[in-house]
């Protein structure tokens, strides 16, 4: 199997981004491995619209850039990030890889309400680390004078689900009839429960790949729409 290049994110160590943007890390690389594993079926489905939700994390734009290397240029690519600096960094990653990526600064899929029913591949690496509610609320309070932007990329609140639980109820309505949703989770997020929530929206979840990295047990799940007669 040919090796797909990891997108160039060298700019993240520049002064403009360092300390403001989450660097590609074990979870990012596992995400790339999962997409690589699924490359044959991703190509075959000929996606037309692919979206990565950042929530401070896609910052690097690394995952959707990698996806575009698999799928090719006949597709529109969007990345959404709540953090303006992360959005700018994603733009630079896409520019270096020469992919046509449009970046929008916004919260989850809210800017794309006209795309309901038409997203073929939706990617999300949420802030999944379980923290106290206080720590989570602090991480999203951008008005605080010593606001730690990196914390917003990982602090997930109780069960690491605070951000994810805002997206879960609407995943199904945004996906196209043969669309899929890829999600990064750790065990503490209770992936089985996530699967049963999405099952009610006719989405079947399957683990693509998992890995133990440091103190985390990471998994990438793929959710696909069940074909209804």
């Amino acid at each position: 199997m040919d090796h797909l290049p990891t997108p160039d994110t060298g700019h993240l160590s520049s002064r403009e981004y360092e300390g403001y943007v989450y660097d590609p890390s074990e979870d990012t690389f596992l995400f790339l491995d999962a997409l690589s594993e699924d490359r044959a079926s991703l190509k075959e489905m000929q996606p037309r619209t692919c979206v990565e939700i950042g929530q401070s994390r896609c910052g690097s734009g690394c995952v959707i850039t990698f996806l575009s290397n698999i799928i090719g240029r006949h597709c529109q690519y969007y990345a959404i990030d709540i953090n303006p600096i992360a959005a700018r960094a994603a733009k630079e990653t896409a520019r270096r890889a020469n992919i046509p990526l449009d970046i929008i600064c916004g919260d989850l899929v809210s800017p794309l309400s006209r795309m309901k029913g038409s997203i073929d591949v939706l990617l999300f690496n949420p802030p999944y680390v379980p923290t106290s509610m206080e720590e989570y609320l602090e991480s999203i309070d951008t008005s605080a004078s010593e606001h730690d932007v990196i914390a917003a990329a990982w602090a997930g609140g109780p069960d690491g689900r605070c951000v994810l639980d805002r997206l879960l109820p609407i995943v199904g309505e945004y996906l196209s009839p043969n669309g899929r949703f890829y999600l990064v989770t750790v065990e503490e997020n209770r992936p089985k429960e996530i699967c049963s929530i999405l099952k009610k929206q006719n989405l079947d979840g399957q683990k693509v790949i998992d890995r133990k990295a440091r103190n985390e047990h990471l998994s990438i799940y793929r959710f696909t729409k069940r074909v209804t007669e």
Binding site: P84, I103, C105, D107
Partner: peptide
């Protein structure tokens, strides 16, 4: 700005 639309509310 810089080609990025800001749709944060």
């Amino acid at each position: 700005k810089n080609g990025i639309v800001n749709m944060l509310l």
